[in-house]
Amino acid sequence: MRRVVVIGTTGSGKSTLAERLAAQTGLRVIELDALFWGRDWQPVPLELFRHRVERETRGDGWIVVGNYGQVRDLVWPNADTVIWLDLPLPLVMWRLVRRTVQRAAAKTELWGTGNRESFRNAFLSRQSILLWALKTHRRNRERYANECMPLAKEKRVVRLQNKREVDRFVTMH
């Protein structure tokens, strides 16, 4: 396990899992959100995003965190392991609400971009990350099931469906 991709719906704990694995394995974490978002929540141009991802994933020893289809062709073929966090919606929403409230209250800057979560955007906006998680959870589960199955022939695919499985996986690596 030297080139790992961690996927899962918004709020499933991808970054947390990646950080825990990195602490155990010494692998470097690459947050796709950090490469994608510019100031004021503006996405960087696609060409720049792809260049950043390509640069960051050169060589060995990384954990890529994120679900961006725009760069899957750069990341997935080079990965030896795909970890799919397939957690139940109530757990995902609980974690996401807690994380969002903490970040908004602390005015935490995300990924060195100057971007911050706000209560207004989280709870009163059509771009709400909470609404996004509700709308995409089922669709992501179906999509990842279809996309991960064929990969199992050539890569290690790990589907983690509850906190106990996640904890067990981390302690084994």
Rank of each mutant, 00 (worst) to 15 (best):
V82E: 06
D86I: 03
T108G: 13
W111G: 01
G66H: 04
R72K: 07
I83N: 03
F123A: 10
W132V: 15
V53N: 02
R95C: 06
E109G: 13
R58N: 12
R120A: 13
Y68H: 09
P77D: 00
I83D: 04
E109L: 12
W111Q: 01
A104K: 02
T100H: 04
N121I: 13
Q42F: 00
A106L: 12
L85E: 06
S128L: 05
V101L: 02
G66S: 12
R50W: 00
T108E: 14
A122M: 03
L131S: 10
W132N: 15
S128V: 10
W84C: 07
R58P: 11
T113E: 01
P90E: 11
D80K: 03
A122P: 05
R98A: 15
A105L: 14
A133W: 05
V44F: 05
P88I: 09
L131C: 12
W111M: 00
T113M: 01
R50P: 02
R126G: 14
L91Q: 10
W94I: 14
E56G: 11
T108W: 04
T113S: 09
F119N: 14
P45D: 14
G69R: 06
H51E: 07
A79M: 03
T57H: 05
L91Y: 08
K107M: 12
V92S: 08
A106R: 13
Q127P: 10
K107N: 15
G114E: 03
